[in-house]
Design a protein around this nucleic acid. Structure first.
Lengths: 173, 173
DNA sequence: GGCTGTCGTTCCATAAACGGAACAGTCAAG
DNA sequence: CTTGACTGTTCCGTTTATGGAACGACAGCC
């Protein structure tokens, strides 16, 4: 992470709108010194400060945070998954992944916590996945679901790479 | 913006991974007091702190900041859907949505082109959806699938808002 | 020339976020 | 029961982010 990048984006957004540092500081209710240091990357701003500034600029917080696009969390050799979204409700937290499974030998993943379930919707290719001792198979358009508190596997059937969405559901304890 | 929401997400992500507050604090190189206060929402964390924690959790900063809100394409009164991804392969085009259905009267959507299918995975709440004359019902964790070349409906059963993922499959003609 | 306004930076006392240590609570082993 | 390792919270001294004030620089105007 690079605070200088965040600072450059804030400054760029401010100058796009043609307002001065002094004015933005006053509107956002932060000190000029704070905003100056933030734009220079010489400070380590507080969430509250960054929020006040970006809200006044009319952009979401995420617009100024330097993100390496996505976060390719490589599960292993055959599977690559990128986290699309995390959300929580009263009963559970969910992680939604976009998943690709390369053809060839599959991949084994260790067990998760008790009660965790996985939900897969296959976009393309044919996927065999589920508990390692009893995997299920789904073609494009199909859907799989299993309790993943045991070791489980992902395998692409045939030569085509599998594209799917993977939803991990973690019940609240 | 609500620091308590950020804190809840951090805690949820940590507990999903089954690691203790003490361990995460040590791995992320922050104090336990800092992490405790962050999870409770009683602190106003620094970007550096939040970055260290989320990086250790393996999620982007945006995952804990309360604003995904990329492209809200409001289907109508009861249903709001945000497009997460578009995917095309040799046979079809897919659109993956995150969908919310508000409790109360449902919503009717007109027919799509012939051959279009919808696949819904319910995360929370109970959803009744499908062809208007023969809707299907699925609880949290359930999955629905229908050919949507006829008018179809979405209705939340009960008082709870429904969260779901919606996959639209458009066959290539 | 002086005067006035605004620009962005720097100085500085205050407030608060920080990490380490001490704390009570829980669980398992002996 | 005692011990030990662990949990998460709270206390507290240190570090640092904060906002107001002072600063020099520049522009327009008299």
């Amino acid at each position: 992470m690079d605070p200088a990048v965040v600072g450059r984006r804030v400054r760029a957004l401010r100058e796009e709108r043609g307002i001065s540092l002094s004015t933005l500081a006053r509107l956002a209710g932060v000190g000029k010194a704070t905003l100056s240091g933030l734009e220079h990357g010489t400070r380590n701003p507080t969430l509250e400060t960054l929020w006040a500034v970006t809200a006044q600029l009319g952009v979401p917080l995420t617009a100024v945070l330097a993100e390496p696009a996505a976060t390719p969390t490589v599960h292993g050799a055959a599977v690559t998954a990128t986290l699309l979204e995390v959300f929580t409700d009263a009963d559970a937290t969910y992680e939604l992944y976009r998943m690709r499974v390369a053809p060839g030998p599959g991949q084994l993943s260790p067990a998760h916590q008790p009660g965790v379930t996985e939900h897969v919707t296959v976009f393309a290719g044919v996927l065999r996945a589920g508990p390692a001792d009893a995997p299920l198979t789904a073609p494009a358009g199909g859907h799989l679901r299993w309790v993943s508190d045991v070791p489980h596997s992902y395998t692409a059937v045939g030569d085509e790479e599998v594209a799917a969405s993977l939803l991990l559901r973690y019940p609240r304890r």
